[in-house]
Design a protein around this nucleic acid. Structure first.
Lengths: 336, 336
DNA sequence: CTGAAAGCGCTTACAG
DNA sequence: CTGAAAGCGCTTACAG
């Protein structure tokens, strides 16, 4: 049905070794031979067998990508970024969507990418030492996206300066005269919290301290990085006797939830409440939300480049900090 | 480094053939031998080489998934659904994100999944005959999600009854007394329109005709399945001298854009304008949007099951119609 | 510049 | 129930 290298060799009147060299563009093949082989391969619609090639070279031309939940906006963006670079460089993308705690446990226990990938990029997962070891056992280059500077020194790192960016967002509110500033944090009840949740919270605290504004734990509500969580957190903030005049949400999705609650309560943004998000989600522009823009697609692309660089022989793992930018829109205004 | 089947065979004192049989749970291996082999494999941390196995069996235990844009809500959901079934059945997921027209052309020309997958699911792409042929050349089971009943009879099909569902949404508006009903269609300027765009539009037209309501082309605006497109389409509808009192948007994302425009113009929903969407996007509940719920995750899962069934020896391609349901929320009300 | 041959790590008739 | 051997389709020293 499909022809093998032997068919091409026979048809072109050369050995399979020569076909192999000619097709891969290796030197030491005469131009005329190369042409003949190429033409023959074309005629026979020859396509190399990846498994045979992999078996001998050990290279799969495939990169594994591990995400907690592909259906979430952030991960879709990151994967699109990874994919674009991989595709450009003729590599395939093997997707591992953990989905939940069970999926996570199963993944690290069974390590399905074993012997199937040349490299791995793990997105956003704060790895336990055992998990990191399981990944190391793969003996392939590893890149981590969005897990902070603390992690494995033998992996490439791509991240934004979460704390600094969050502090900047809160400083923006302080500059507008706000002093009662609520935080809708990414924190959830999970055993391993996402790094971004912690660090954005730290940035919030830092900005307040720097400004000499007292920290009020009542203003610090977990929102679990979800619309609904953001909506509920906002509602809770509005139950306070001394309610905030501004809110920093650690993600745009939570900010959108907060906006919805405000609208339901008949409160106006920004007149009655200023709101800042984080991400620059597609919807942020639409609802005129002030937010921290982070190049999510770029983070994915960069991680993919790190892995490919390592495969190309780069010794040291790399670390990239993708810049962020406060995008000021209409959801924030000076305290009245 | 990593041990091979030969190591296990030597250590267990049997042939590689026996190791192979024992590990795969084939019959004709004595219980004691099987136990010994299993234990040895465990001790040596033996993991089969997928490429070697694939080379001889032809099976990759991998399914290719082709999507136009993984970062969009719909595709993230579908892929999560596919992944869950694949994972359950010990298959890997090779993701092909076309990203744009160039990516699409490159994909169908080069067919990267060639010899790399046991099956393919293509999501939402209305396939040209040449593209379908390219996929057929893979000689693996094919499942199509959301491309309508017209397509290849040799592929499994998973879809919702787009036209019927859309007609139901519009009928809901008609039942509320609306007669001037706008359509924010998915249509774009692309050469190959998405099937859902066409069919939801058809459902809109059918419902109006059935009710004897005159069709006004001025009420039919393309929105390209995007927030921004929905926002602009709504704005355009509001420029009409005889503006609609209700709008059906062919996706929730467009409906959200429309809601935003209405809010900006100071129009109230549903008092001044009723709005129905399509999808039951996570945000729909949050903004109280009446919409058509379709099980997107389930569509992905079903397609994956179809592919696995075909691999298990099922002869006939299957066709599944996933049910939809109108979810009435607060964005629609009787005409005043 | 080119080819013969070994080998990558499995599975599968075939024989016993 | 078990093993020897061929073979899947490539790549890679090695020799010439």
């Amino acid at each position: 049905m499909t022809s093998s290298i032997v068919d091409v060799a026979r048809e072109a009147g050369v050995s399979t070794a020569t076909v192999s060299r000619a097709l891969r563009g290796l030197p030491r093949v005469s131009p005329s031979t190369r042409r003949r082989v190429l033409r023959t391969a074309e005629e026979l619609a020859y396509v190399i067998s990846p498994s045979a090639s992999t078996l001998v070279t050990g290279r799969t031309r495939t990169v594994g990508v591990v995400v907690p939940a592909i259906q979430r906006w952030f991960y879709g963006q990151v994967v699109a970024g990874i994919d674009s670079v991989l595709r450009e460089n003729d590599h395939d993308l093997l997707l591992y969507n953990l989905a939940d705690g069970g999926g996570r446990a199963r993944f690290f226990e069974r390590m399905p990418p074993r012997r199937r990938v040349d490299g791995v990029v793990v997105v956003t997962l704060p790895l336990a030492e055992a998990e990191l070891d399981a990944l190391r056992d793969l003996h392939v280059p590893l890149a981590l996206v969005g897990v902070g500077p603390s992690s494995a020194s033998d992996a490439s790192l791509v991240r934004v300066d979460e704390e600094e960016a969050a502090a900047g967002a809160v400083q923006h509110l302080l500059n507008l005269g706000h002093r009662r500033i609520g935080l809708i944090a990414g924190l959830a009840a999970e055993p391993l919290p996402f790094v971004a949740a912690e660090q954005r919270r730290r940035g919030y605290l830092r900005a307040l301290r720097r400004a000499g504004v007292p920290i009020d734990p009542a203003l610090d509500i977990p929102g679990n990085f979800e619309f609904e969580g953001g909506a509920q957190a906002m509602a809770q903030l509005l139950t306070l006797a001394d309610a905030p005049t501004a809110v920093f949400a650690a993600s745009d999705e939570m900010a959108l939830g907060a906006l919805r609650t405000l609208q339901r309560m008949g409160l106006r943004v920004p007149q009655d409440m200023s709101v800042v998000g984080f991400d620059d989600h597609e919807l942020a522009a639409l609802v005129d939300l002030t937010t921290v823009s982070q190049g999510v697609h770029a983070q994915g692309a960069t991680a993919a480049r790190h892995v490919l660089a390592a495969l190309a022989g780069d010794e040291a793992p790399r670390a990239s900090i993708v810049p962020t930018q406060l995008v000021v829109r209409g959801s924030t205004a000076a305290l009245r």
